[in-house]
């Protein structure tokens, strides 16, 4: 039996860079299905499909789906309860009181 190969989440860098100003490869995400938290780069990405499907490495739950049509991108993150995105220590909003 042939097991479908997957790529690691680093391959999402290019497709997501088209959407986001920040680099999401260093972001952490929490799986909605099993609660596992880990780097986006550690997701299992199945690219041989009508869109990109990124799954939790622990439970294989779908955390992210990205479909790029000619006119728009469809990003579904319902399988991720959050993305934690590293930012510089600057905090413009809210300003310290």
């Amino acid at each position: 039996m042939t097991e479908m190969s997957y790529l690691d989440g680093n391959m999402l860098d290019g497709p997501l860079r088209e959407l986001f100003a920040v680099d999401l490869s260093a972001a952490t995400g929490r799986c909605e299905a099993c609660g596992t938290t880990g780097p986006m780069a550690g997701l299992h990405v199945y690219p041989h499909a009508p869109g990109l499907v990124a799954r939790c490495p622990a439970c294989q739950g779908v955390m992210l789906r990205l479909v790029r049509t000619p006119q728009r991108a469809w990003l579904d993150l319902r399988g991720a309860t959050y993305l934690g995105i590293p930012l510089p220590p600057d905090q413009p909003y809210p300003r310290p009181l």
Binding site: M1, T2, E3, M4, Y6, Y46, H48, A49, P50, G51, V53, R55, Q60, V62
Partner: peptide
């Protein structure tokens, strides 16, 4: 016959 799959092959 290309193989497309959105996840691991269920056993």
């Amino acid at each position: 016959f290309p193989v497309l799959s959105a996840g691991p092959t269920p056993k």
